[in-house]
């Protein structure tokens, strides 16, 4: 945190036109805004996976844990357990969170642990040069599936909702102001907040024409209504063309996991006494 820009001097290696820039700008702007409103920036910890998205850890001048592929959620969960006062933000890829680490995503949602999870969903493995992911549409031609995939994409929002996530949203990298608003709202939400961000990969998967045509802001929707959220989330299944709603589908308050672990550590003297009394059979 050398200055107010929140950017390190690490050389940026994203391709020109990459949607990761938009996410970085949005996240940075939100953090600076929140800082000006009183959020101590040293309370922020960014956890990333491995992939193009994950370079965020090098680029943003905040506390970070540049983790390993697929394991963002358990690392972030450990950090939040250690200190529930930290603002833990996860930047994960779609390969990261939906393939390699899907189990952890489901369990993080199930626990309603207080994390803000931003999925850089470019629907491709960027860093490993263009293979399909769980959200690539049926028939996607990637380098591991040159004749097109023979499995359908799944709908990550539906999955997270079903798993117990208490805040479920979708953004798009070409809708900056909305993306900022969604990130801000997600950080503010206490509990598991999830944003699937449709991200342009300029090199391996750029469906921006379709997104621009199909995306629309969610309005007149009650995010407290689970059934309505389900219906809206199912409007687009990530395979066939359909209207793509952007916004917050679901948001409710529920007790969060880490709060139950808010404990003051024992002093050595207290620990010593506890052990003695235990061994004396009390």
């Amino acid at each position: 945190m050398t200055g107010t820009t929140l950017v390190t001097d690490a050389q940026n290696t994203w391709c020109p036109g990459c949607g990761n820039f938009s996410i970085q700008h949005a996240l940075r702007a939100v953090l600076l805004e929140m800082a000006s409103e009183g959020l101590p920036l040293e309370q922020v910890v960014l956890v990333t996976g491995i992939g193009c998205h994950a370079k965020m850890a090098d680029y943003l001048d905040v506390n970070s844990f540049y983790a390993i592929h697929g394991r963002v959620m358990p690392v972030a969960t450990g950090i939040a357990l250690a200190n529930p006062d930290l603002t833990v933000i996860c930047c994960a890829g779609d390969g990261d969170a939906y393939a390699e680490g899907l189990d952890h995503l489901i369990f993080a949602a199930k626990r309603n642990i207080n994390l803000t999870v931003i999925i850089h969903n470019n629907r491709v493995y960027g860093l490993t040069t263009g293979q399909y992911t769980p959200t690539s549409p049926l028939g996607f031609r990637g380098r591991s599936t040159p004749k097109g995939t023979v499995e359908k994409a799944f709908n990550p929002l539906e999955l997270v909702l079903a798993s117990g996530g208490t805040h479920v949203a979708r953004g798009y990298t070409r809708k900056q102001p909305m993306l900022k608003a969604l990130i801000r709202e997600a950080i503010r939400h206490r509990g598991f907040s999830f944003i699937d961000v449709l991200q342009i990969c300029a090199t391996y998967n750029d469906p921006h024409e379709a997104y621009d045509r199909l995306a629309y802001p969610l309005t007149g929707h009650n995010p407290g209504d689970f059934d309505a959220a389900c219906r809206k989330i199912r409007e687009w299944d990530y395979n066939r063309e359909a209207p793509i709603a952007l916004g917050t589908f679901y948001s409710v308050e529920e007790p969060s996991f880490e709060e139950r672990f808010r404990l003051t550590p024992q002093s050595p003297a207290e620990r010593e006494a506890a052990i003695r009394s235990h061994l004396e059979g009390n």
Partner: peptide, 29 residues
């Protein structure tokens, strides 16, 4: 008795990574 945080996660991958996150957050784990 020991004000201990005991967690049983989804699998051992989660166990180890959660432990590393917790250690970085200041826990002795």
């Amino acid at each position: 008795r020991y004000r201990l945080k005991v967690v049983h996660p989804e699998n051992e991958i989660g166990v180890m990574l959660m432990a590393l996150g917790a250690a970085c957050g200041g826990e002795r784990v």
